[in-house]
Nucleic acid binder design. Sequence first.
DNA 1: ACCTGAACACCGTTCAAGT
DNA 2: ACCTGAACACCGTTCAAGT
Lengths: 191, 191
Amino acid sequence: MRSDAERNYARILSAAKTIVAKQGAQASLRDVARRAEVGMGTLYRHFPTREALLETLLRDRFEALAAKAAALESARDPFAALAEWLREFLSWTPFRGLASALMATLSDQESALHASCHAMRQAVGRLLARAQESGQVRPEVDSLDLFALVNAVGWVSEQAPDLAARQERLLGFVLDGLASQQDDADSRECR
Amino acid sequence: MRSDAERNYARILSAAKTIVAKQGAQASLRDVARRAEVGMGTLYRHFPTREALLETLLRDRFEALAAKAAALESARDPFAALAEWLREFLSWTPFRGLASALMATLSDQESALHASCHAMRQAVGRLLARAQESGQVRPEVDSLDLFALVNAVGWVSEQAPDLAARQERLLGFVLDGLASQQDDADSRECR
DNA sequence: ACCTGAACACCGTTCAAGT
DNA sequence: ACCTGAACACCGTTCAAGT
């Protein structure tokens, strides 16, 4: 990579980090180029799609989360390990629209973000399987359910500050819903 | 209302219904005006904001859902009644972005959609209270939790067709999470 | 190789000019 | 009273022209 290209690449990423944090995933790419003091064509040369740019902003974090999941595989309590990973996942909210961007990667197999997410999803899938083998999580739950629900909680938290404040609570409800149920529907009536 | 105004109002609504169903809540207002064969100023005269247009598209349904909730207040099983209302709520998916639009009304007290939603939220709040009084739902859940979580499930369903297919399943998990829990965290371990 | 920025086709919003 | 559509300031994307 030519030195001016390398410099521009770094400037764009730095600008994008700021602008996307402020404006969300739908931030103006023109604003990014302006802040990076770079022509629009330069931005497109380095990041052919908006998604490629977001992927570069997110990649490191996904790798870290995948590593965290791998580490938690040897935890004593598989359910607690799963819960801890999910809390960790939700604790990082780099910009509005993240939940939506992550869900979009499910359909779009070609995208850079899809690849970036895949290892992480595999790793948390193993955490889920362990929690199911130990009988703590309902056997019919799969990793898509889990990924969808945790992103749903993340999405809710993006919607309003007072909902962000409830994030742990809401995750708790969802986790209890995924946990093995001891009571059936009948016993719930008139207790 | 002058007769040409009345005609334009109806044409705009009809066009909006089609375009918004296709493009979602972020549909192009220009496309709506074009399809209605109306100038942009006419659209703005009748619907000063995008939200006002959406509110008019949604109002009847919200009233029906509020009425449904009121009717379910006298049901024998309050938990089943709540579950039925939530399924009914989720069964109607007029366009992408609905969940987001509904959540936005929470912060924006001035909006037309906020008013439209309020009666419905009150009504389902009473369903929730009944289910709590009967001991079927955890006492710490409030109606904002419930509204957030049901919209979260609706949002997930907007993200991909195979997630829409899981909507009932996901709602089931969430409902079980809100239901009174018989087991505590310790008893979940190594069962 | 890489960068620039004008060009193009869109968009939301406003408002002078019409009837 | 209501309607029209051009005008304005944006946007994403492309690409001829430069170095």
